Amino acid sequence: MSQLPLQRLRLPRTGARAASRGQGEALRRVPSDEVVARAAEAKGVPEATVARLPTYLQALHALAEDGTSTVSSQELADLVHVSAAMLRKDLSQLGSYGTRGVGYDVATLVHEMSAVLGLEHDWPVAIVGVGNLGRALAHYGGFTSRGLSIAALFDADPAVVGTVVNGHTVHHVDEVAALVAERNVRIAVIATPARAAQATSDVLVAAGVTSILCFAGAAVRVPADVTVRAVDLSSELQILGFHEQRKRSDVLGPLRPGRADHGADHGIDHVVGGGAR
Rank of each mutant, 00 (worst) to 15 (best):
D174I: 00
V222K: 08
H270M: 12
V125P: 01
S201M: 07
V116E: 08
G147Y: 06
S114C: 08
G98F: 03
H243G: 02
T49A: 15
R52N: 12
F242G: 08
N184Y: 04
Q245Y: 10
E75C: 01
S32M: 02
C214V: 04
G273W: 06
I268C: 00
T227E: 12
K43N: 10
G258A: 10
R10G: 01
A26H: 13
V125R: 01
V128G: 03
G15H: 10
K89F: 05
L252H: 13
I187W: 07
Y104D: 02
D105C: 04
V203E: 15
V271Y: 11
A188F: 03
V203P: 00
G142L: 13
V110N: 06
L91A: 07
L6F: 09
L117H: 08
A177C: 02
L237E: 08
V173I: 14
G15C: 07
A159W: 00
R21S: 14
A224D: 15
A191N: 07
L9G: 01
V220N: 03
H168A: 03
S20V: 04
E244A: 14
A19W: 10
P223M: 09
D122I: 02
H171F: 11
R17T: 09
R52K: 14
V106T: 06
A156K: 11
L240Y: 04
L27F: 12
